[in-house]
Design a binder for these strands. Sequence first.
DNA 1: CGCCAGGACGCCC
DNA 2: GGGCGTCATGGC
Length: 269
Amino acid sequence: MDYSVKNNDIIVCEKDFNLDETLDCGQAFRWKKIDRGYRCTYEGSFLNDSLTVSQVSDDMFVFHDVSEEDFLGKWADYFDFDTDYSELKKQFSEDETLAKACSFAGGIRLLRQNSWECLISFIISQNNNIPRIKGIIDRLCEHYGEFPNASKMAEETPDSLAFLRSGFRAKYLCDAADCVNSGTVDLNAIAAAPIDEARAALKKIKGVGPKVAECVLLFGMYRKEAFPVDVWIKRVLAEYYPNGFPEFINENAGIAQQYLFHYIRNLNE
DNA sequence: CGCCAGGACGCCC
DNA sequence: GGGCGTCATGGC
């Protein structure tokens, strides 16, 4: 990644990056499309910052009104600019289906998001669709003025969360908040634990099954070997990988999964 | 109106 | 251990 400083902006040159594909592919639910790009706020949250970012050409981006220090210290990490996606896609493309997926939407990057936010977001995601997931998370943030931490959410009950209109998931959100707030579930420890141990620990939370646990590991803990299997990936596996997913992908299976997910969902367009 | 959505749980066998 | 009905809500 190449960057330069212009006035109060950071100009980034990066060819393996597309904002629409990365911020609207179902890994993050809080980025808003605005006139000149996307905006998200993490104020009071793990980044304690806000950002407006826009894509001005295939390989050029503007990080608006951000210091070089904050860009390097926060956003370069968040957007995973240290990882060479060109090299990853080159490896993936030895597989015929993945080659197509990579050329279809090669601008997806795995965001380094916050584990707690991902836990809550993907509990909400179960048996739900992306527009409605976004709506519920919007109402959550609007209610607290920011994405609430576990301690704030632990004060709630399923009834007091009725304003979310999250349905049967409210009781799961409360259990997640209780587990994290009380220390029964230590997200930082889980992030560093062996993968099977991490999976088991996450699934102690009510409403966290195999799929949600895998999403939290991948999107909230940067565990690139995690491989969430939802209805779309089931279709991919059945149709293109009847004899199993290629083993050489394993350590980056989660990133490959992102390309495949986006590919199969948009195949008809 | 019915069907589906980035599923998990409880119960049954 | 696998199969199935159920769980809220809303977009289409």
